[in-house]
């Protein structure tokens, strides 16, 4: 590993929804080219942490520095978000556009690329996820795994320096999980910095550089996959891993 600077630096962020405190002071950082998997039970705050990073949620307090920029006080939220790709559990492809338009329109609108340039980049990215042959397809007619791969291509079209994945395979039929995880693995190997909220323990074990276990709004334990999965220090981590293994 070379000298890699932290891309994401989070200090003591807190977030509450009404009476429910979802994040209770989280410190978290990610270095360049690192793949970090966030694991934990539903409601442990991992999705909220991820959403705070691209400002879909606004942290109530604390600091979040991404690419050295204090994003809670950034002037141009949209320019910042364009640098951070995000994939959602429900894919969220634009249903009024076909596969290719899903990938080209955001480029033209946000990055002001020409139609031709956007199309070329989109086709390249669709190729990368194995969906080039579906460029003209209506997004309502393709399978869940294909939708998620298109969603990944769409995010990649913006040339993100950081990718966030919010349970990208949780809404998929079991036989489609693999195709999406393979694409993500491929991205990881190419050196993209990624933060992945996942319930796929095997993926976390194989692909992650670091695994972070969250529990009740805090980071309970973090370490390499080897440390965390084979020698968990916290009893809570151990209990979670045991219940996850029994599924």
């Amino acid at each position: 590993m070379q000298a890699e600077q932290p891309i994401v630096e989070i200090r003591d962020i807190r977030k509450r929804f009404g009476n429910l405190e979802v994040l209770k002071g989280v410190d978290f950082s990610v270095r360049e080219k690192e793949v970090v998997c966030l694991i934990g039970r539903s409601g442990s705050g991992k999705s909220t942490l991820l959403r705070c990073i691209n400002l879909l949620e606004r942290a109530d307090s604390g600091t979040i520095r991404v690419f050295g920029e204090d994003i809670l006080h950034t002037k141009d939220v949209n320019a910042y978000r364009a640098k951070v790709g995000m994939c959602f559990q429900q894919f969220n492809l634009f249903s009024n556009m076909n596969v290719l338009e899903n990938c080209t329109k955001p480029q033209c609108m946000v990055l002001k690329r020409s139609k031709e340039e956007a199309r070329e980049i989109a086709l390249h990215r669709l190729d990368q996820v194995g969906m080039r042959g579906f460029a003209g397809a209506d997004v309502r007619t393709i399978s869940g795994g294909q939708k998620q791969r298109v969603a990944i291509a769409r995010a990649l079209c913006m040339d993100p320096k950081l990718m966030l994945f919010d349970e990208p395979t949780s809404a998929l039929d079991p036989e489609m999980v693999g195709e999406v995880l393979n694409v993500m693995k491929d991205l990881a190997e190419k050196g993209l910095t990624m933060i992945v909220v996942t319930h796929e323990m095997n993926f976390a074990r194989d692909v992650a550089d670091r695994v972070v276990f969250m529990d009740q709004g805090k980071i309970e334990e973090e370490g390499t996959p080897e440390e965390l999965f084979s020698h968990p220090k916290s009893p809570r981590t151990e209990a979670f891993l045991r219940s996850a293994a029994n599924k």
């Binding site: 879909l56 949209n78 978000r81 640098k83 959602f88 429900q90 969220n92 946000v110 995010a155």
Partner: peptide, 12 residues
């Protein structure tokens, strides 16, 4: 989710 996806891509 449509709005969230659009905003996450940097659309105003």
């Amino acid at each position: 989710g449509q709005t969230e996806a659009a905003r996450s891509l940097g659309m105003s």
